[in-house]
């Protein structure tokens, strides 16, 4: 692994580097989940009262999951299989990107107020929150990452950056996309934990 990493770094092949990093990034998620689950089970208290989901919430969430899942499938799978993204998978990835660009503003407008962090001790007068800290944190990561992942490609479509700049944008796109996917997985886990009454 280290030898290959050194070779890739020496060659300056950032695409190949991403391909190497990708499996390890996904391997970290189960570790986080297991650790978090253990802590949750050990320090389990009475589950907090949470706001219920309405149809709109579900649609938005499913839309986001669908878009990000599709984008991940068309990119990461291709990168792992062929080392690059092109042809039909790239076309589908672009279609998914269009959908994600549509879903992200809806997600933000609908969910941002539900994901505010409370600063200071709860007064007890406010309505129950919909999410606890993990989904909230992941929501903001998804939003920030979503902006980066979308803007990097939108900027690439303009004749602003040369090849070197475009490669930097591509790297930013890759890693911010990875962060969004990982954040969404953790968000899904956080929501599942909540639904199971562990939080």
């Amino acid at each position: 692994m280290l030898g290959e990493l050194n070779r890739v770094l020496a060659a300056g092949d950032t695409g190949e580097l991403f391909r190497l990093v990708l499996p390890y990034a996904f391997a970290v998620i189960p570790v986080i989940i297991v650790v978090h689950l253990l802590i949750s089970l050990v320090f389990r208290g009475a589950p907090a009262e949470r706001k219920r989901w309405n149809l709109w919430d579900i649609l938005i969430y499913l839309g986001t999951l669908g878009c990000v899942g599709g984008l991940a499938a068309t990119s990461f799978v291709e990168v792992l299989r062929h080392g690059e993204l092109g042809g039909w998978p790239l076309f589908l990835h672009m279609c998914g990107a269009g959908a994600f660009t549509a879903v992200l503003p809806l997600l933000v407008l609908s969910w941002a107020h539900l994901n505010q962090f409370e600063v200071g001790p709860a007064t007890g007068k406010t309505a129950p929150a919909k999410f606890y800290w993990l989904p909230k944190l992941m929501f903001w990561v998804i939003v920030a990452g979503g902006i980066v992942v979308t803007m990097t490609m939108l900027v690439s479509m303009l004749p602003i950056f040369g090849t070197d700049g475009m490669l930097v944008l591509l790297d930013l796109h890759r890693y911010s996309g990875l962060i969004v996917v990982l954040a969404l997985v953790l968000h899904l886990y956080g929501v599942a934990v909540q639904r199971m009454g562990l939080r």
Binding site: T150, L154, L158
Partner: peptide
């Protein structure tokens, strides 16, 4: 058209994010 839409959408998302960041900072 997608470029125009994309920039508008990301502008909106960025504004919301900025608003909440500012609110967070104000609360802290």
């Amino acid at each position: 058209a997608f470029k125009y839409y994309g920039y508008a959408a990301m502008g909106l998302v960025s504004l919301v994010l900025l608003a909440y960041v500012l609110r967070g900072i104000a609360s802290v």
